[in-house]
């Protein structure tokens, strides 16, 4: 064997060795390594949890309604000022129905896409990040309240995704995503015409078929927030001027 061949063989060997090392050291989550029956069981478990969640949330809404009714019945006994304070606080936390003039935005996947059978990072899909950006835009537009597919969005609301599933307030939501808000429609339209607003979403609406439409509404009703408020780690400071 000539020297050249030997050199090429040695170089190739080293290159293959490097590739193999990199290959086996790359930690990538496998798409699936489970038998079909296990995957089916997992899907069934998720469905059961979602069903249970719906029942629990409706029970919470019912109990909050009953508490409100009971408070109204005791109104004569309870100092009016206390009840007013409580109602004001509840309103600012999204614990009361809110209605007024506003608009609805519908955000939907590209019509050519099946959400359940597509790879990750498909630009024709609406992602949780898109909804977060839209909610942030509405907040900076000073809207008075936001709801998405019947879920009231508050400051502590989470808009996350697990794979291609979008979860708001830990509730599973499916497209189309209808974002309802109370606020000024005309100035929002002006803002949306700015190419620097929602840049990525605008690009994907134009190039990848994501559907985005907005409609003015004389009367938008926002539902009551049906999630939780945890305060077990928070203490009231004695000196309120911290």
């Amino acid at each position: 064997m000539s020297n050249s061949i030997k050199i090429i063989s040695v170089c190739t060997g080293i290159f293959v060795g490097v590739l193999m090392t990199v290959q086996f050291r790359t930690s990538t989550p496998a798409a699936s390594s489970y038998p079909l029956d296990q995957l089916e069981a997992q899907k069934q478990l998720i469905k059961e949890y979602i069903d249970e969640e719906a029942v629990l949330k409706s029970r919470i809404s019912l109990l909050r309604d009953k508490i409100d009714t009971s408070l109204k019945n005791n109104e004569a006994l309870i100092k009016t000022s206390n009840l007013e304070t409580l109602n004001r606080l509840k309103a600012s936390m999204g614990l009361t129905l809110k209605s007024g003039e506003g608009f609805t935005i519908e955000l939907n996947d590209s019509p050519f896409i099946d959400r359940d059978n597509i790879p990750k990072e498909e630009p024709g899909l609406v992602y949780a990040a898109d909804i977060r950006d839209l909610v942030n835009l509405l907040r900076s537009h000073k809207v008075e309240g936001i709801a998405i597919n019947g879920q009231r969005v508050i400051a502590a609301s989470t808009i996350t995704s697990v794979g291609n599933t979008v979860m708001i307030n830990n509730s599973h939501l499916a497209p189309p995503f209808t974002v309802s808000a109370i606020g000024d429609f005309d100035s929002l339209m002006l803002r949306l015409q700015d190419p620097a607003t929602l840049t990525d979403l605008q690009k994907r609406v134009t190039e990848n078929g994501i559907r985005f439409s907005i409609q003015k509404s004389p009367y938008v009703i926002l539902p009551v927030y049906n999630g939780l408020f945890h305060t077990n780690f928070i203490q009231a400071a004695t000196n309120e001027t911290i």
Binding site: P29, A31, L39, Q42, L45, I46, Y49, I50, E52, E53, L56, K120, E121, Y127, A128, A129, T160, S161, V162, G163, N164, T165, M167, N170
Partner: peptide, 19 residues
């Protein structure tokens, strides 16, 4: 990317804790 990847165990854990 900006959102977490698919993890069925994470999803189950989140739902369980939430419930």
């Amino acid at each position: 990317g900006r959102d977490s990847g698919e993890n069925v165990f994470r999803k189950i854990q989140m739902l369980k804790t939430s419930n």
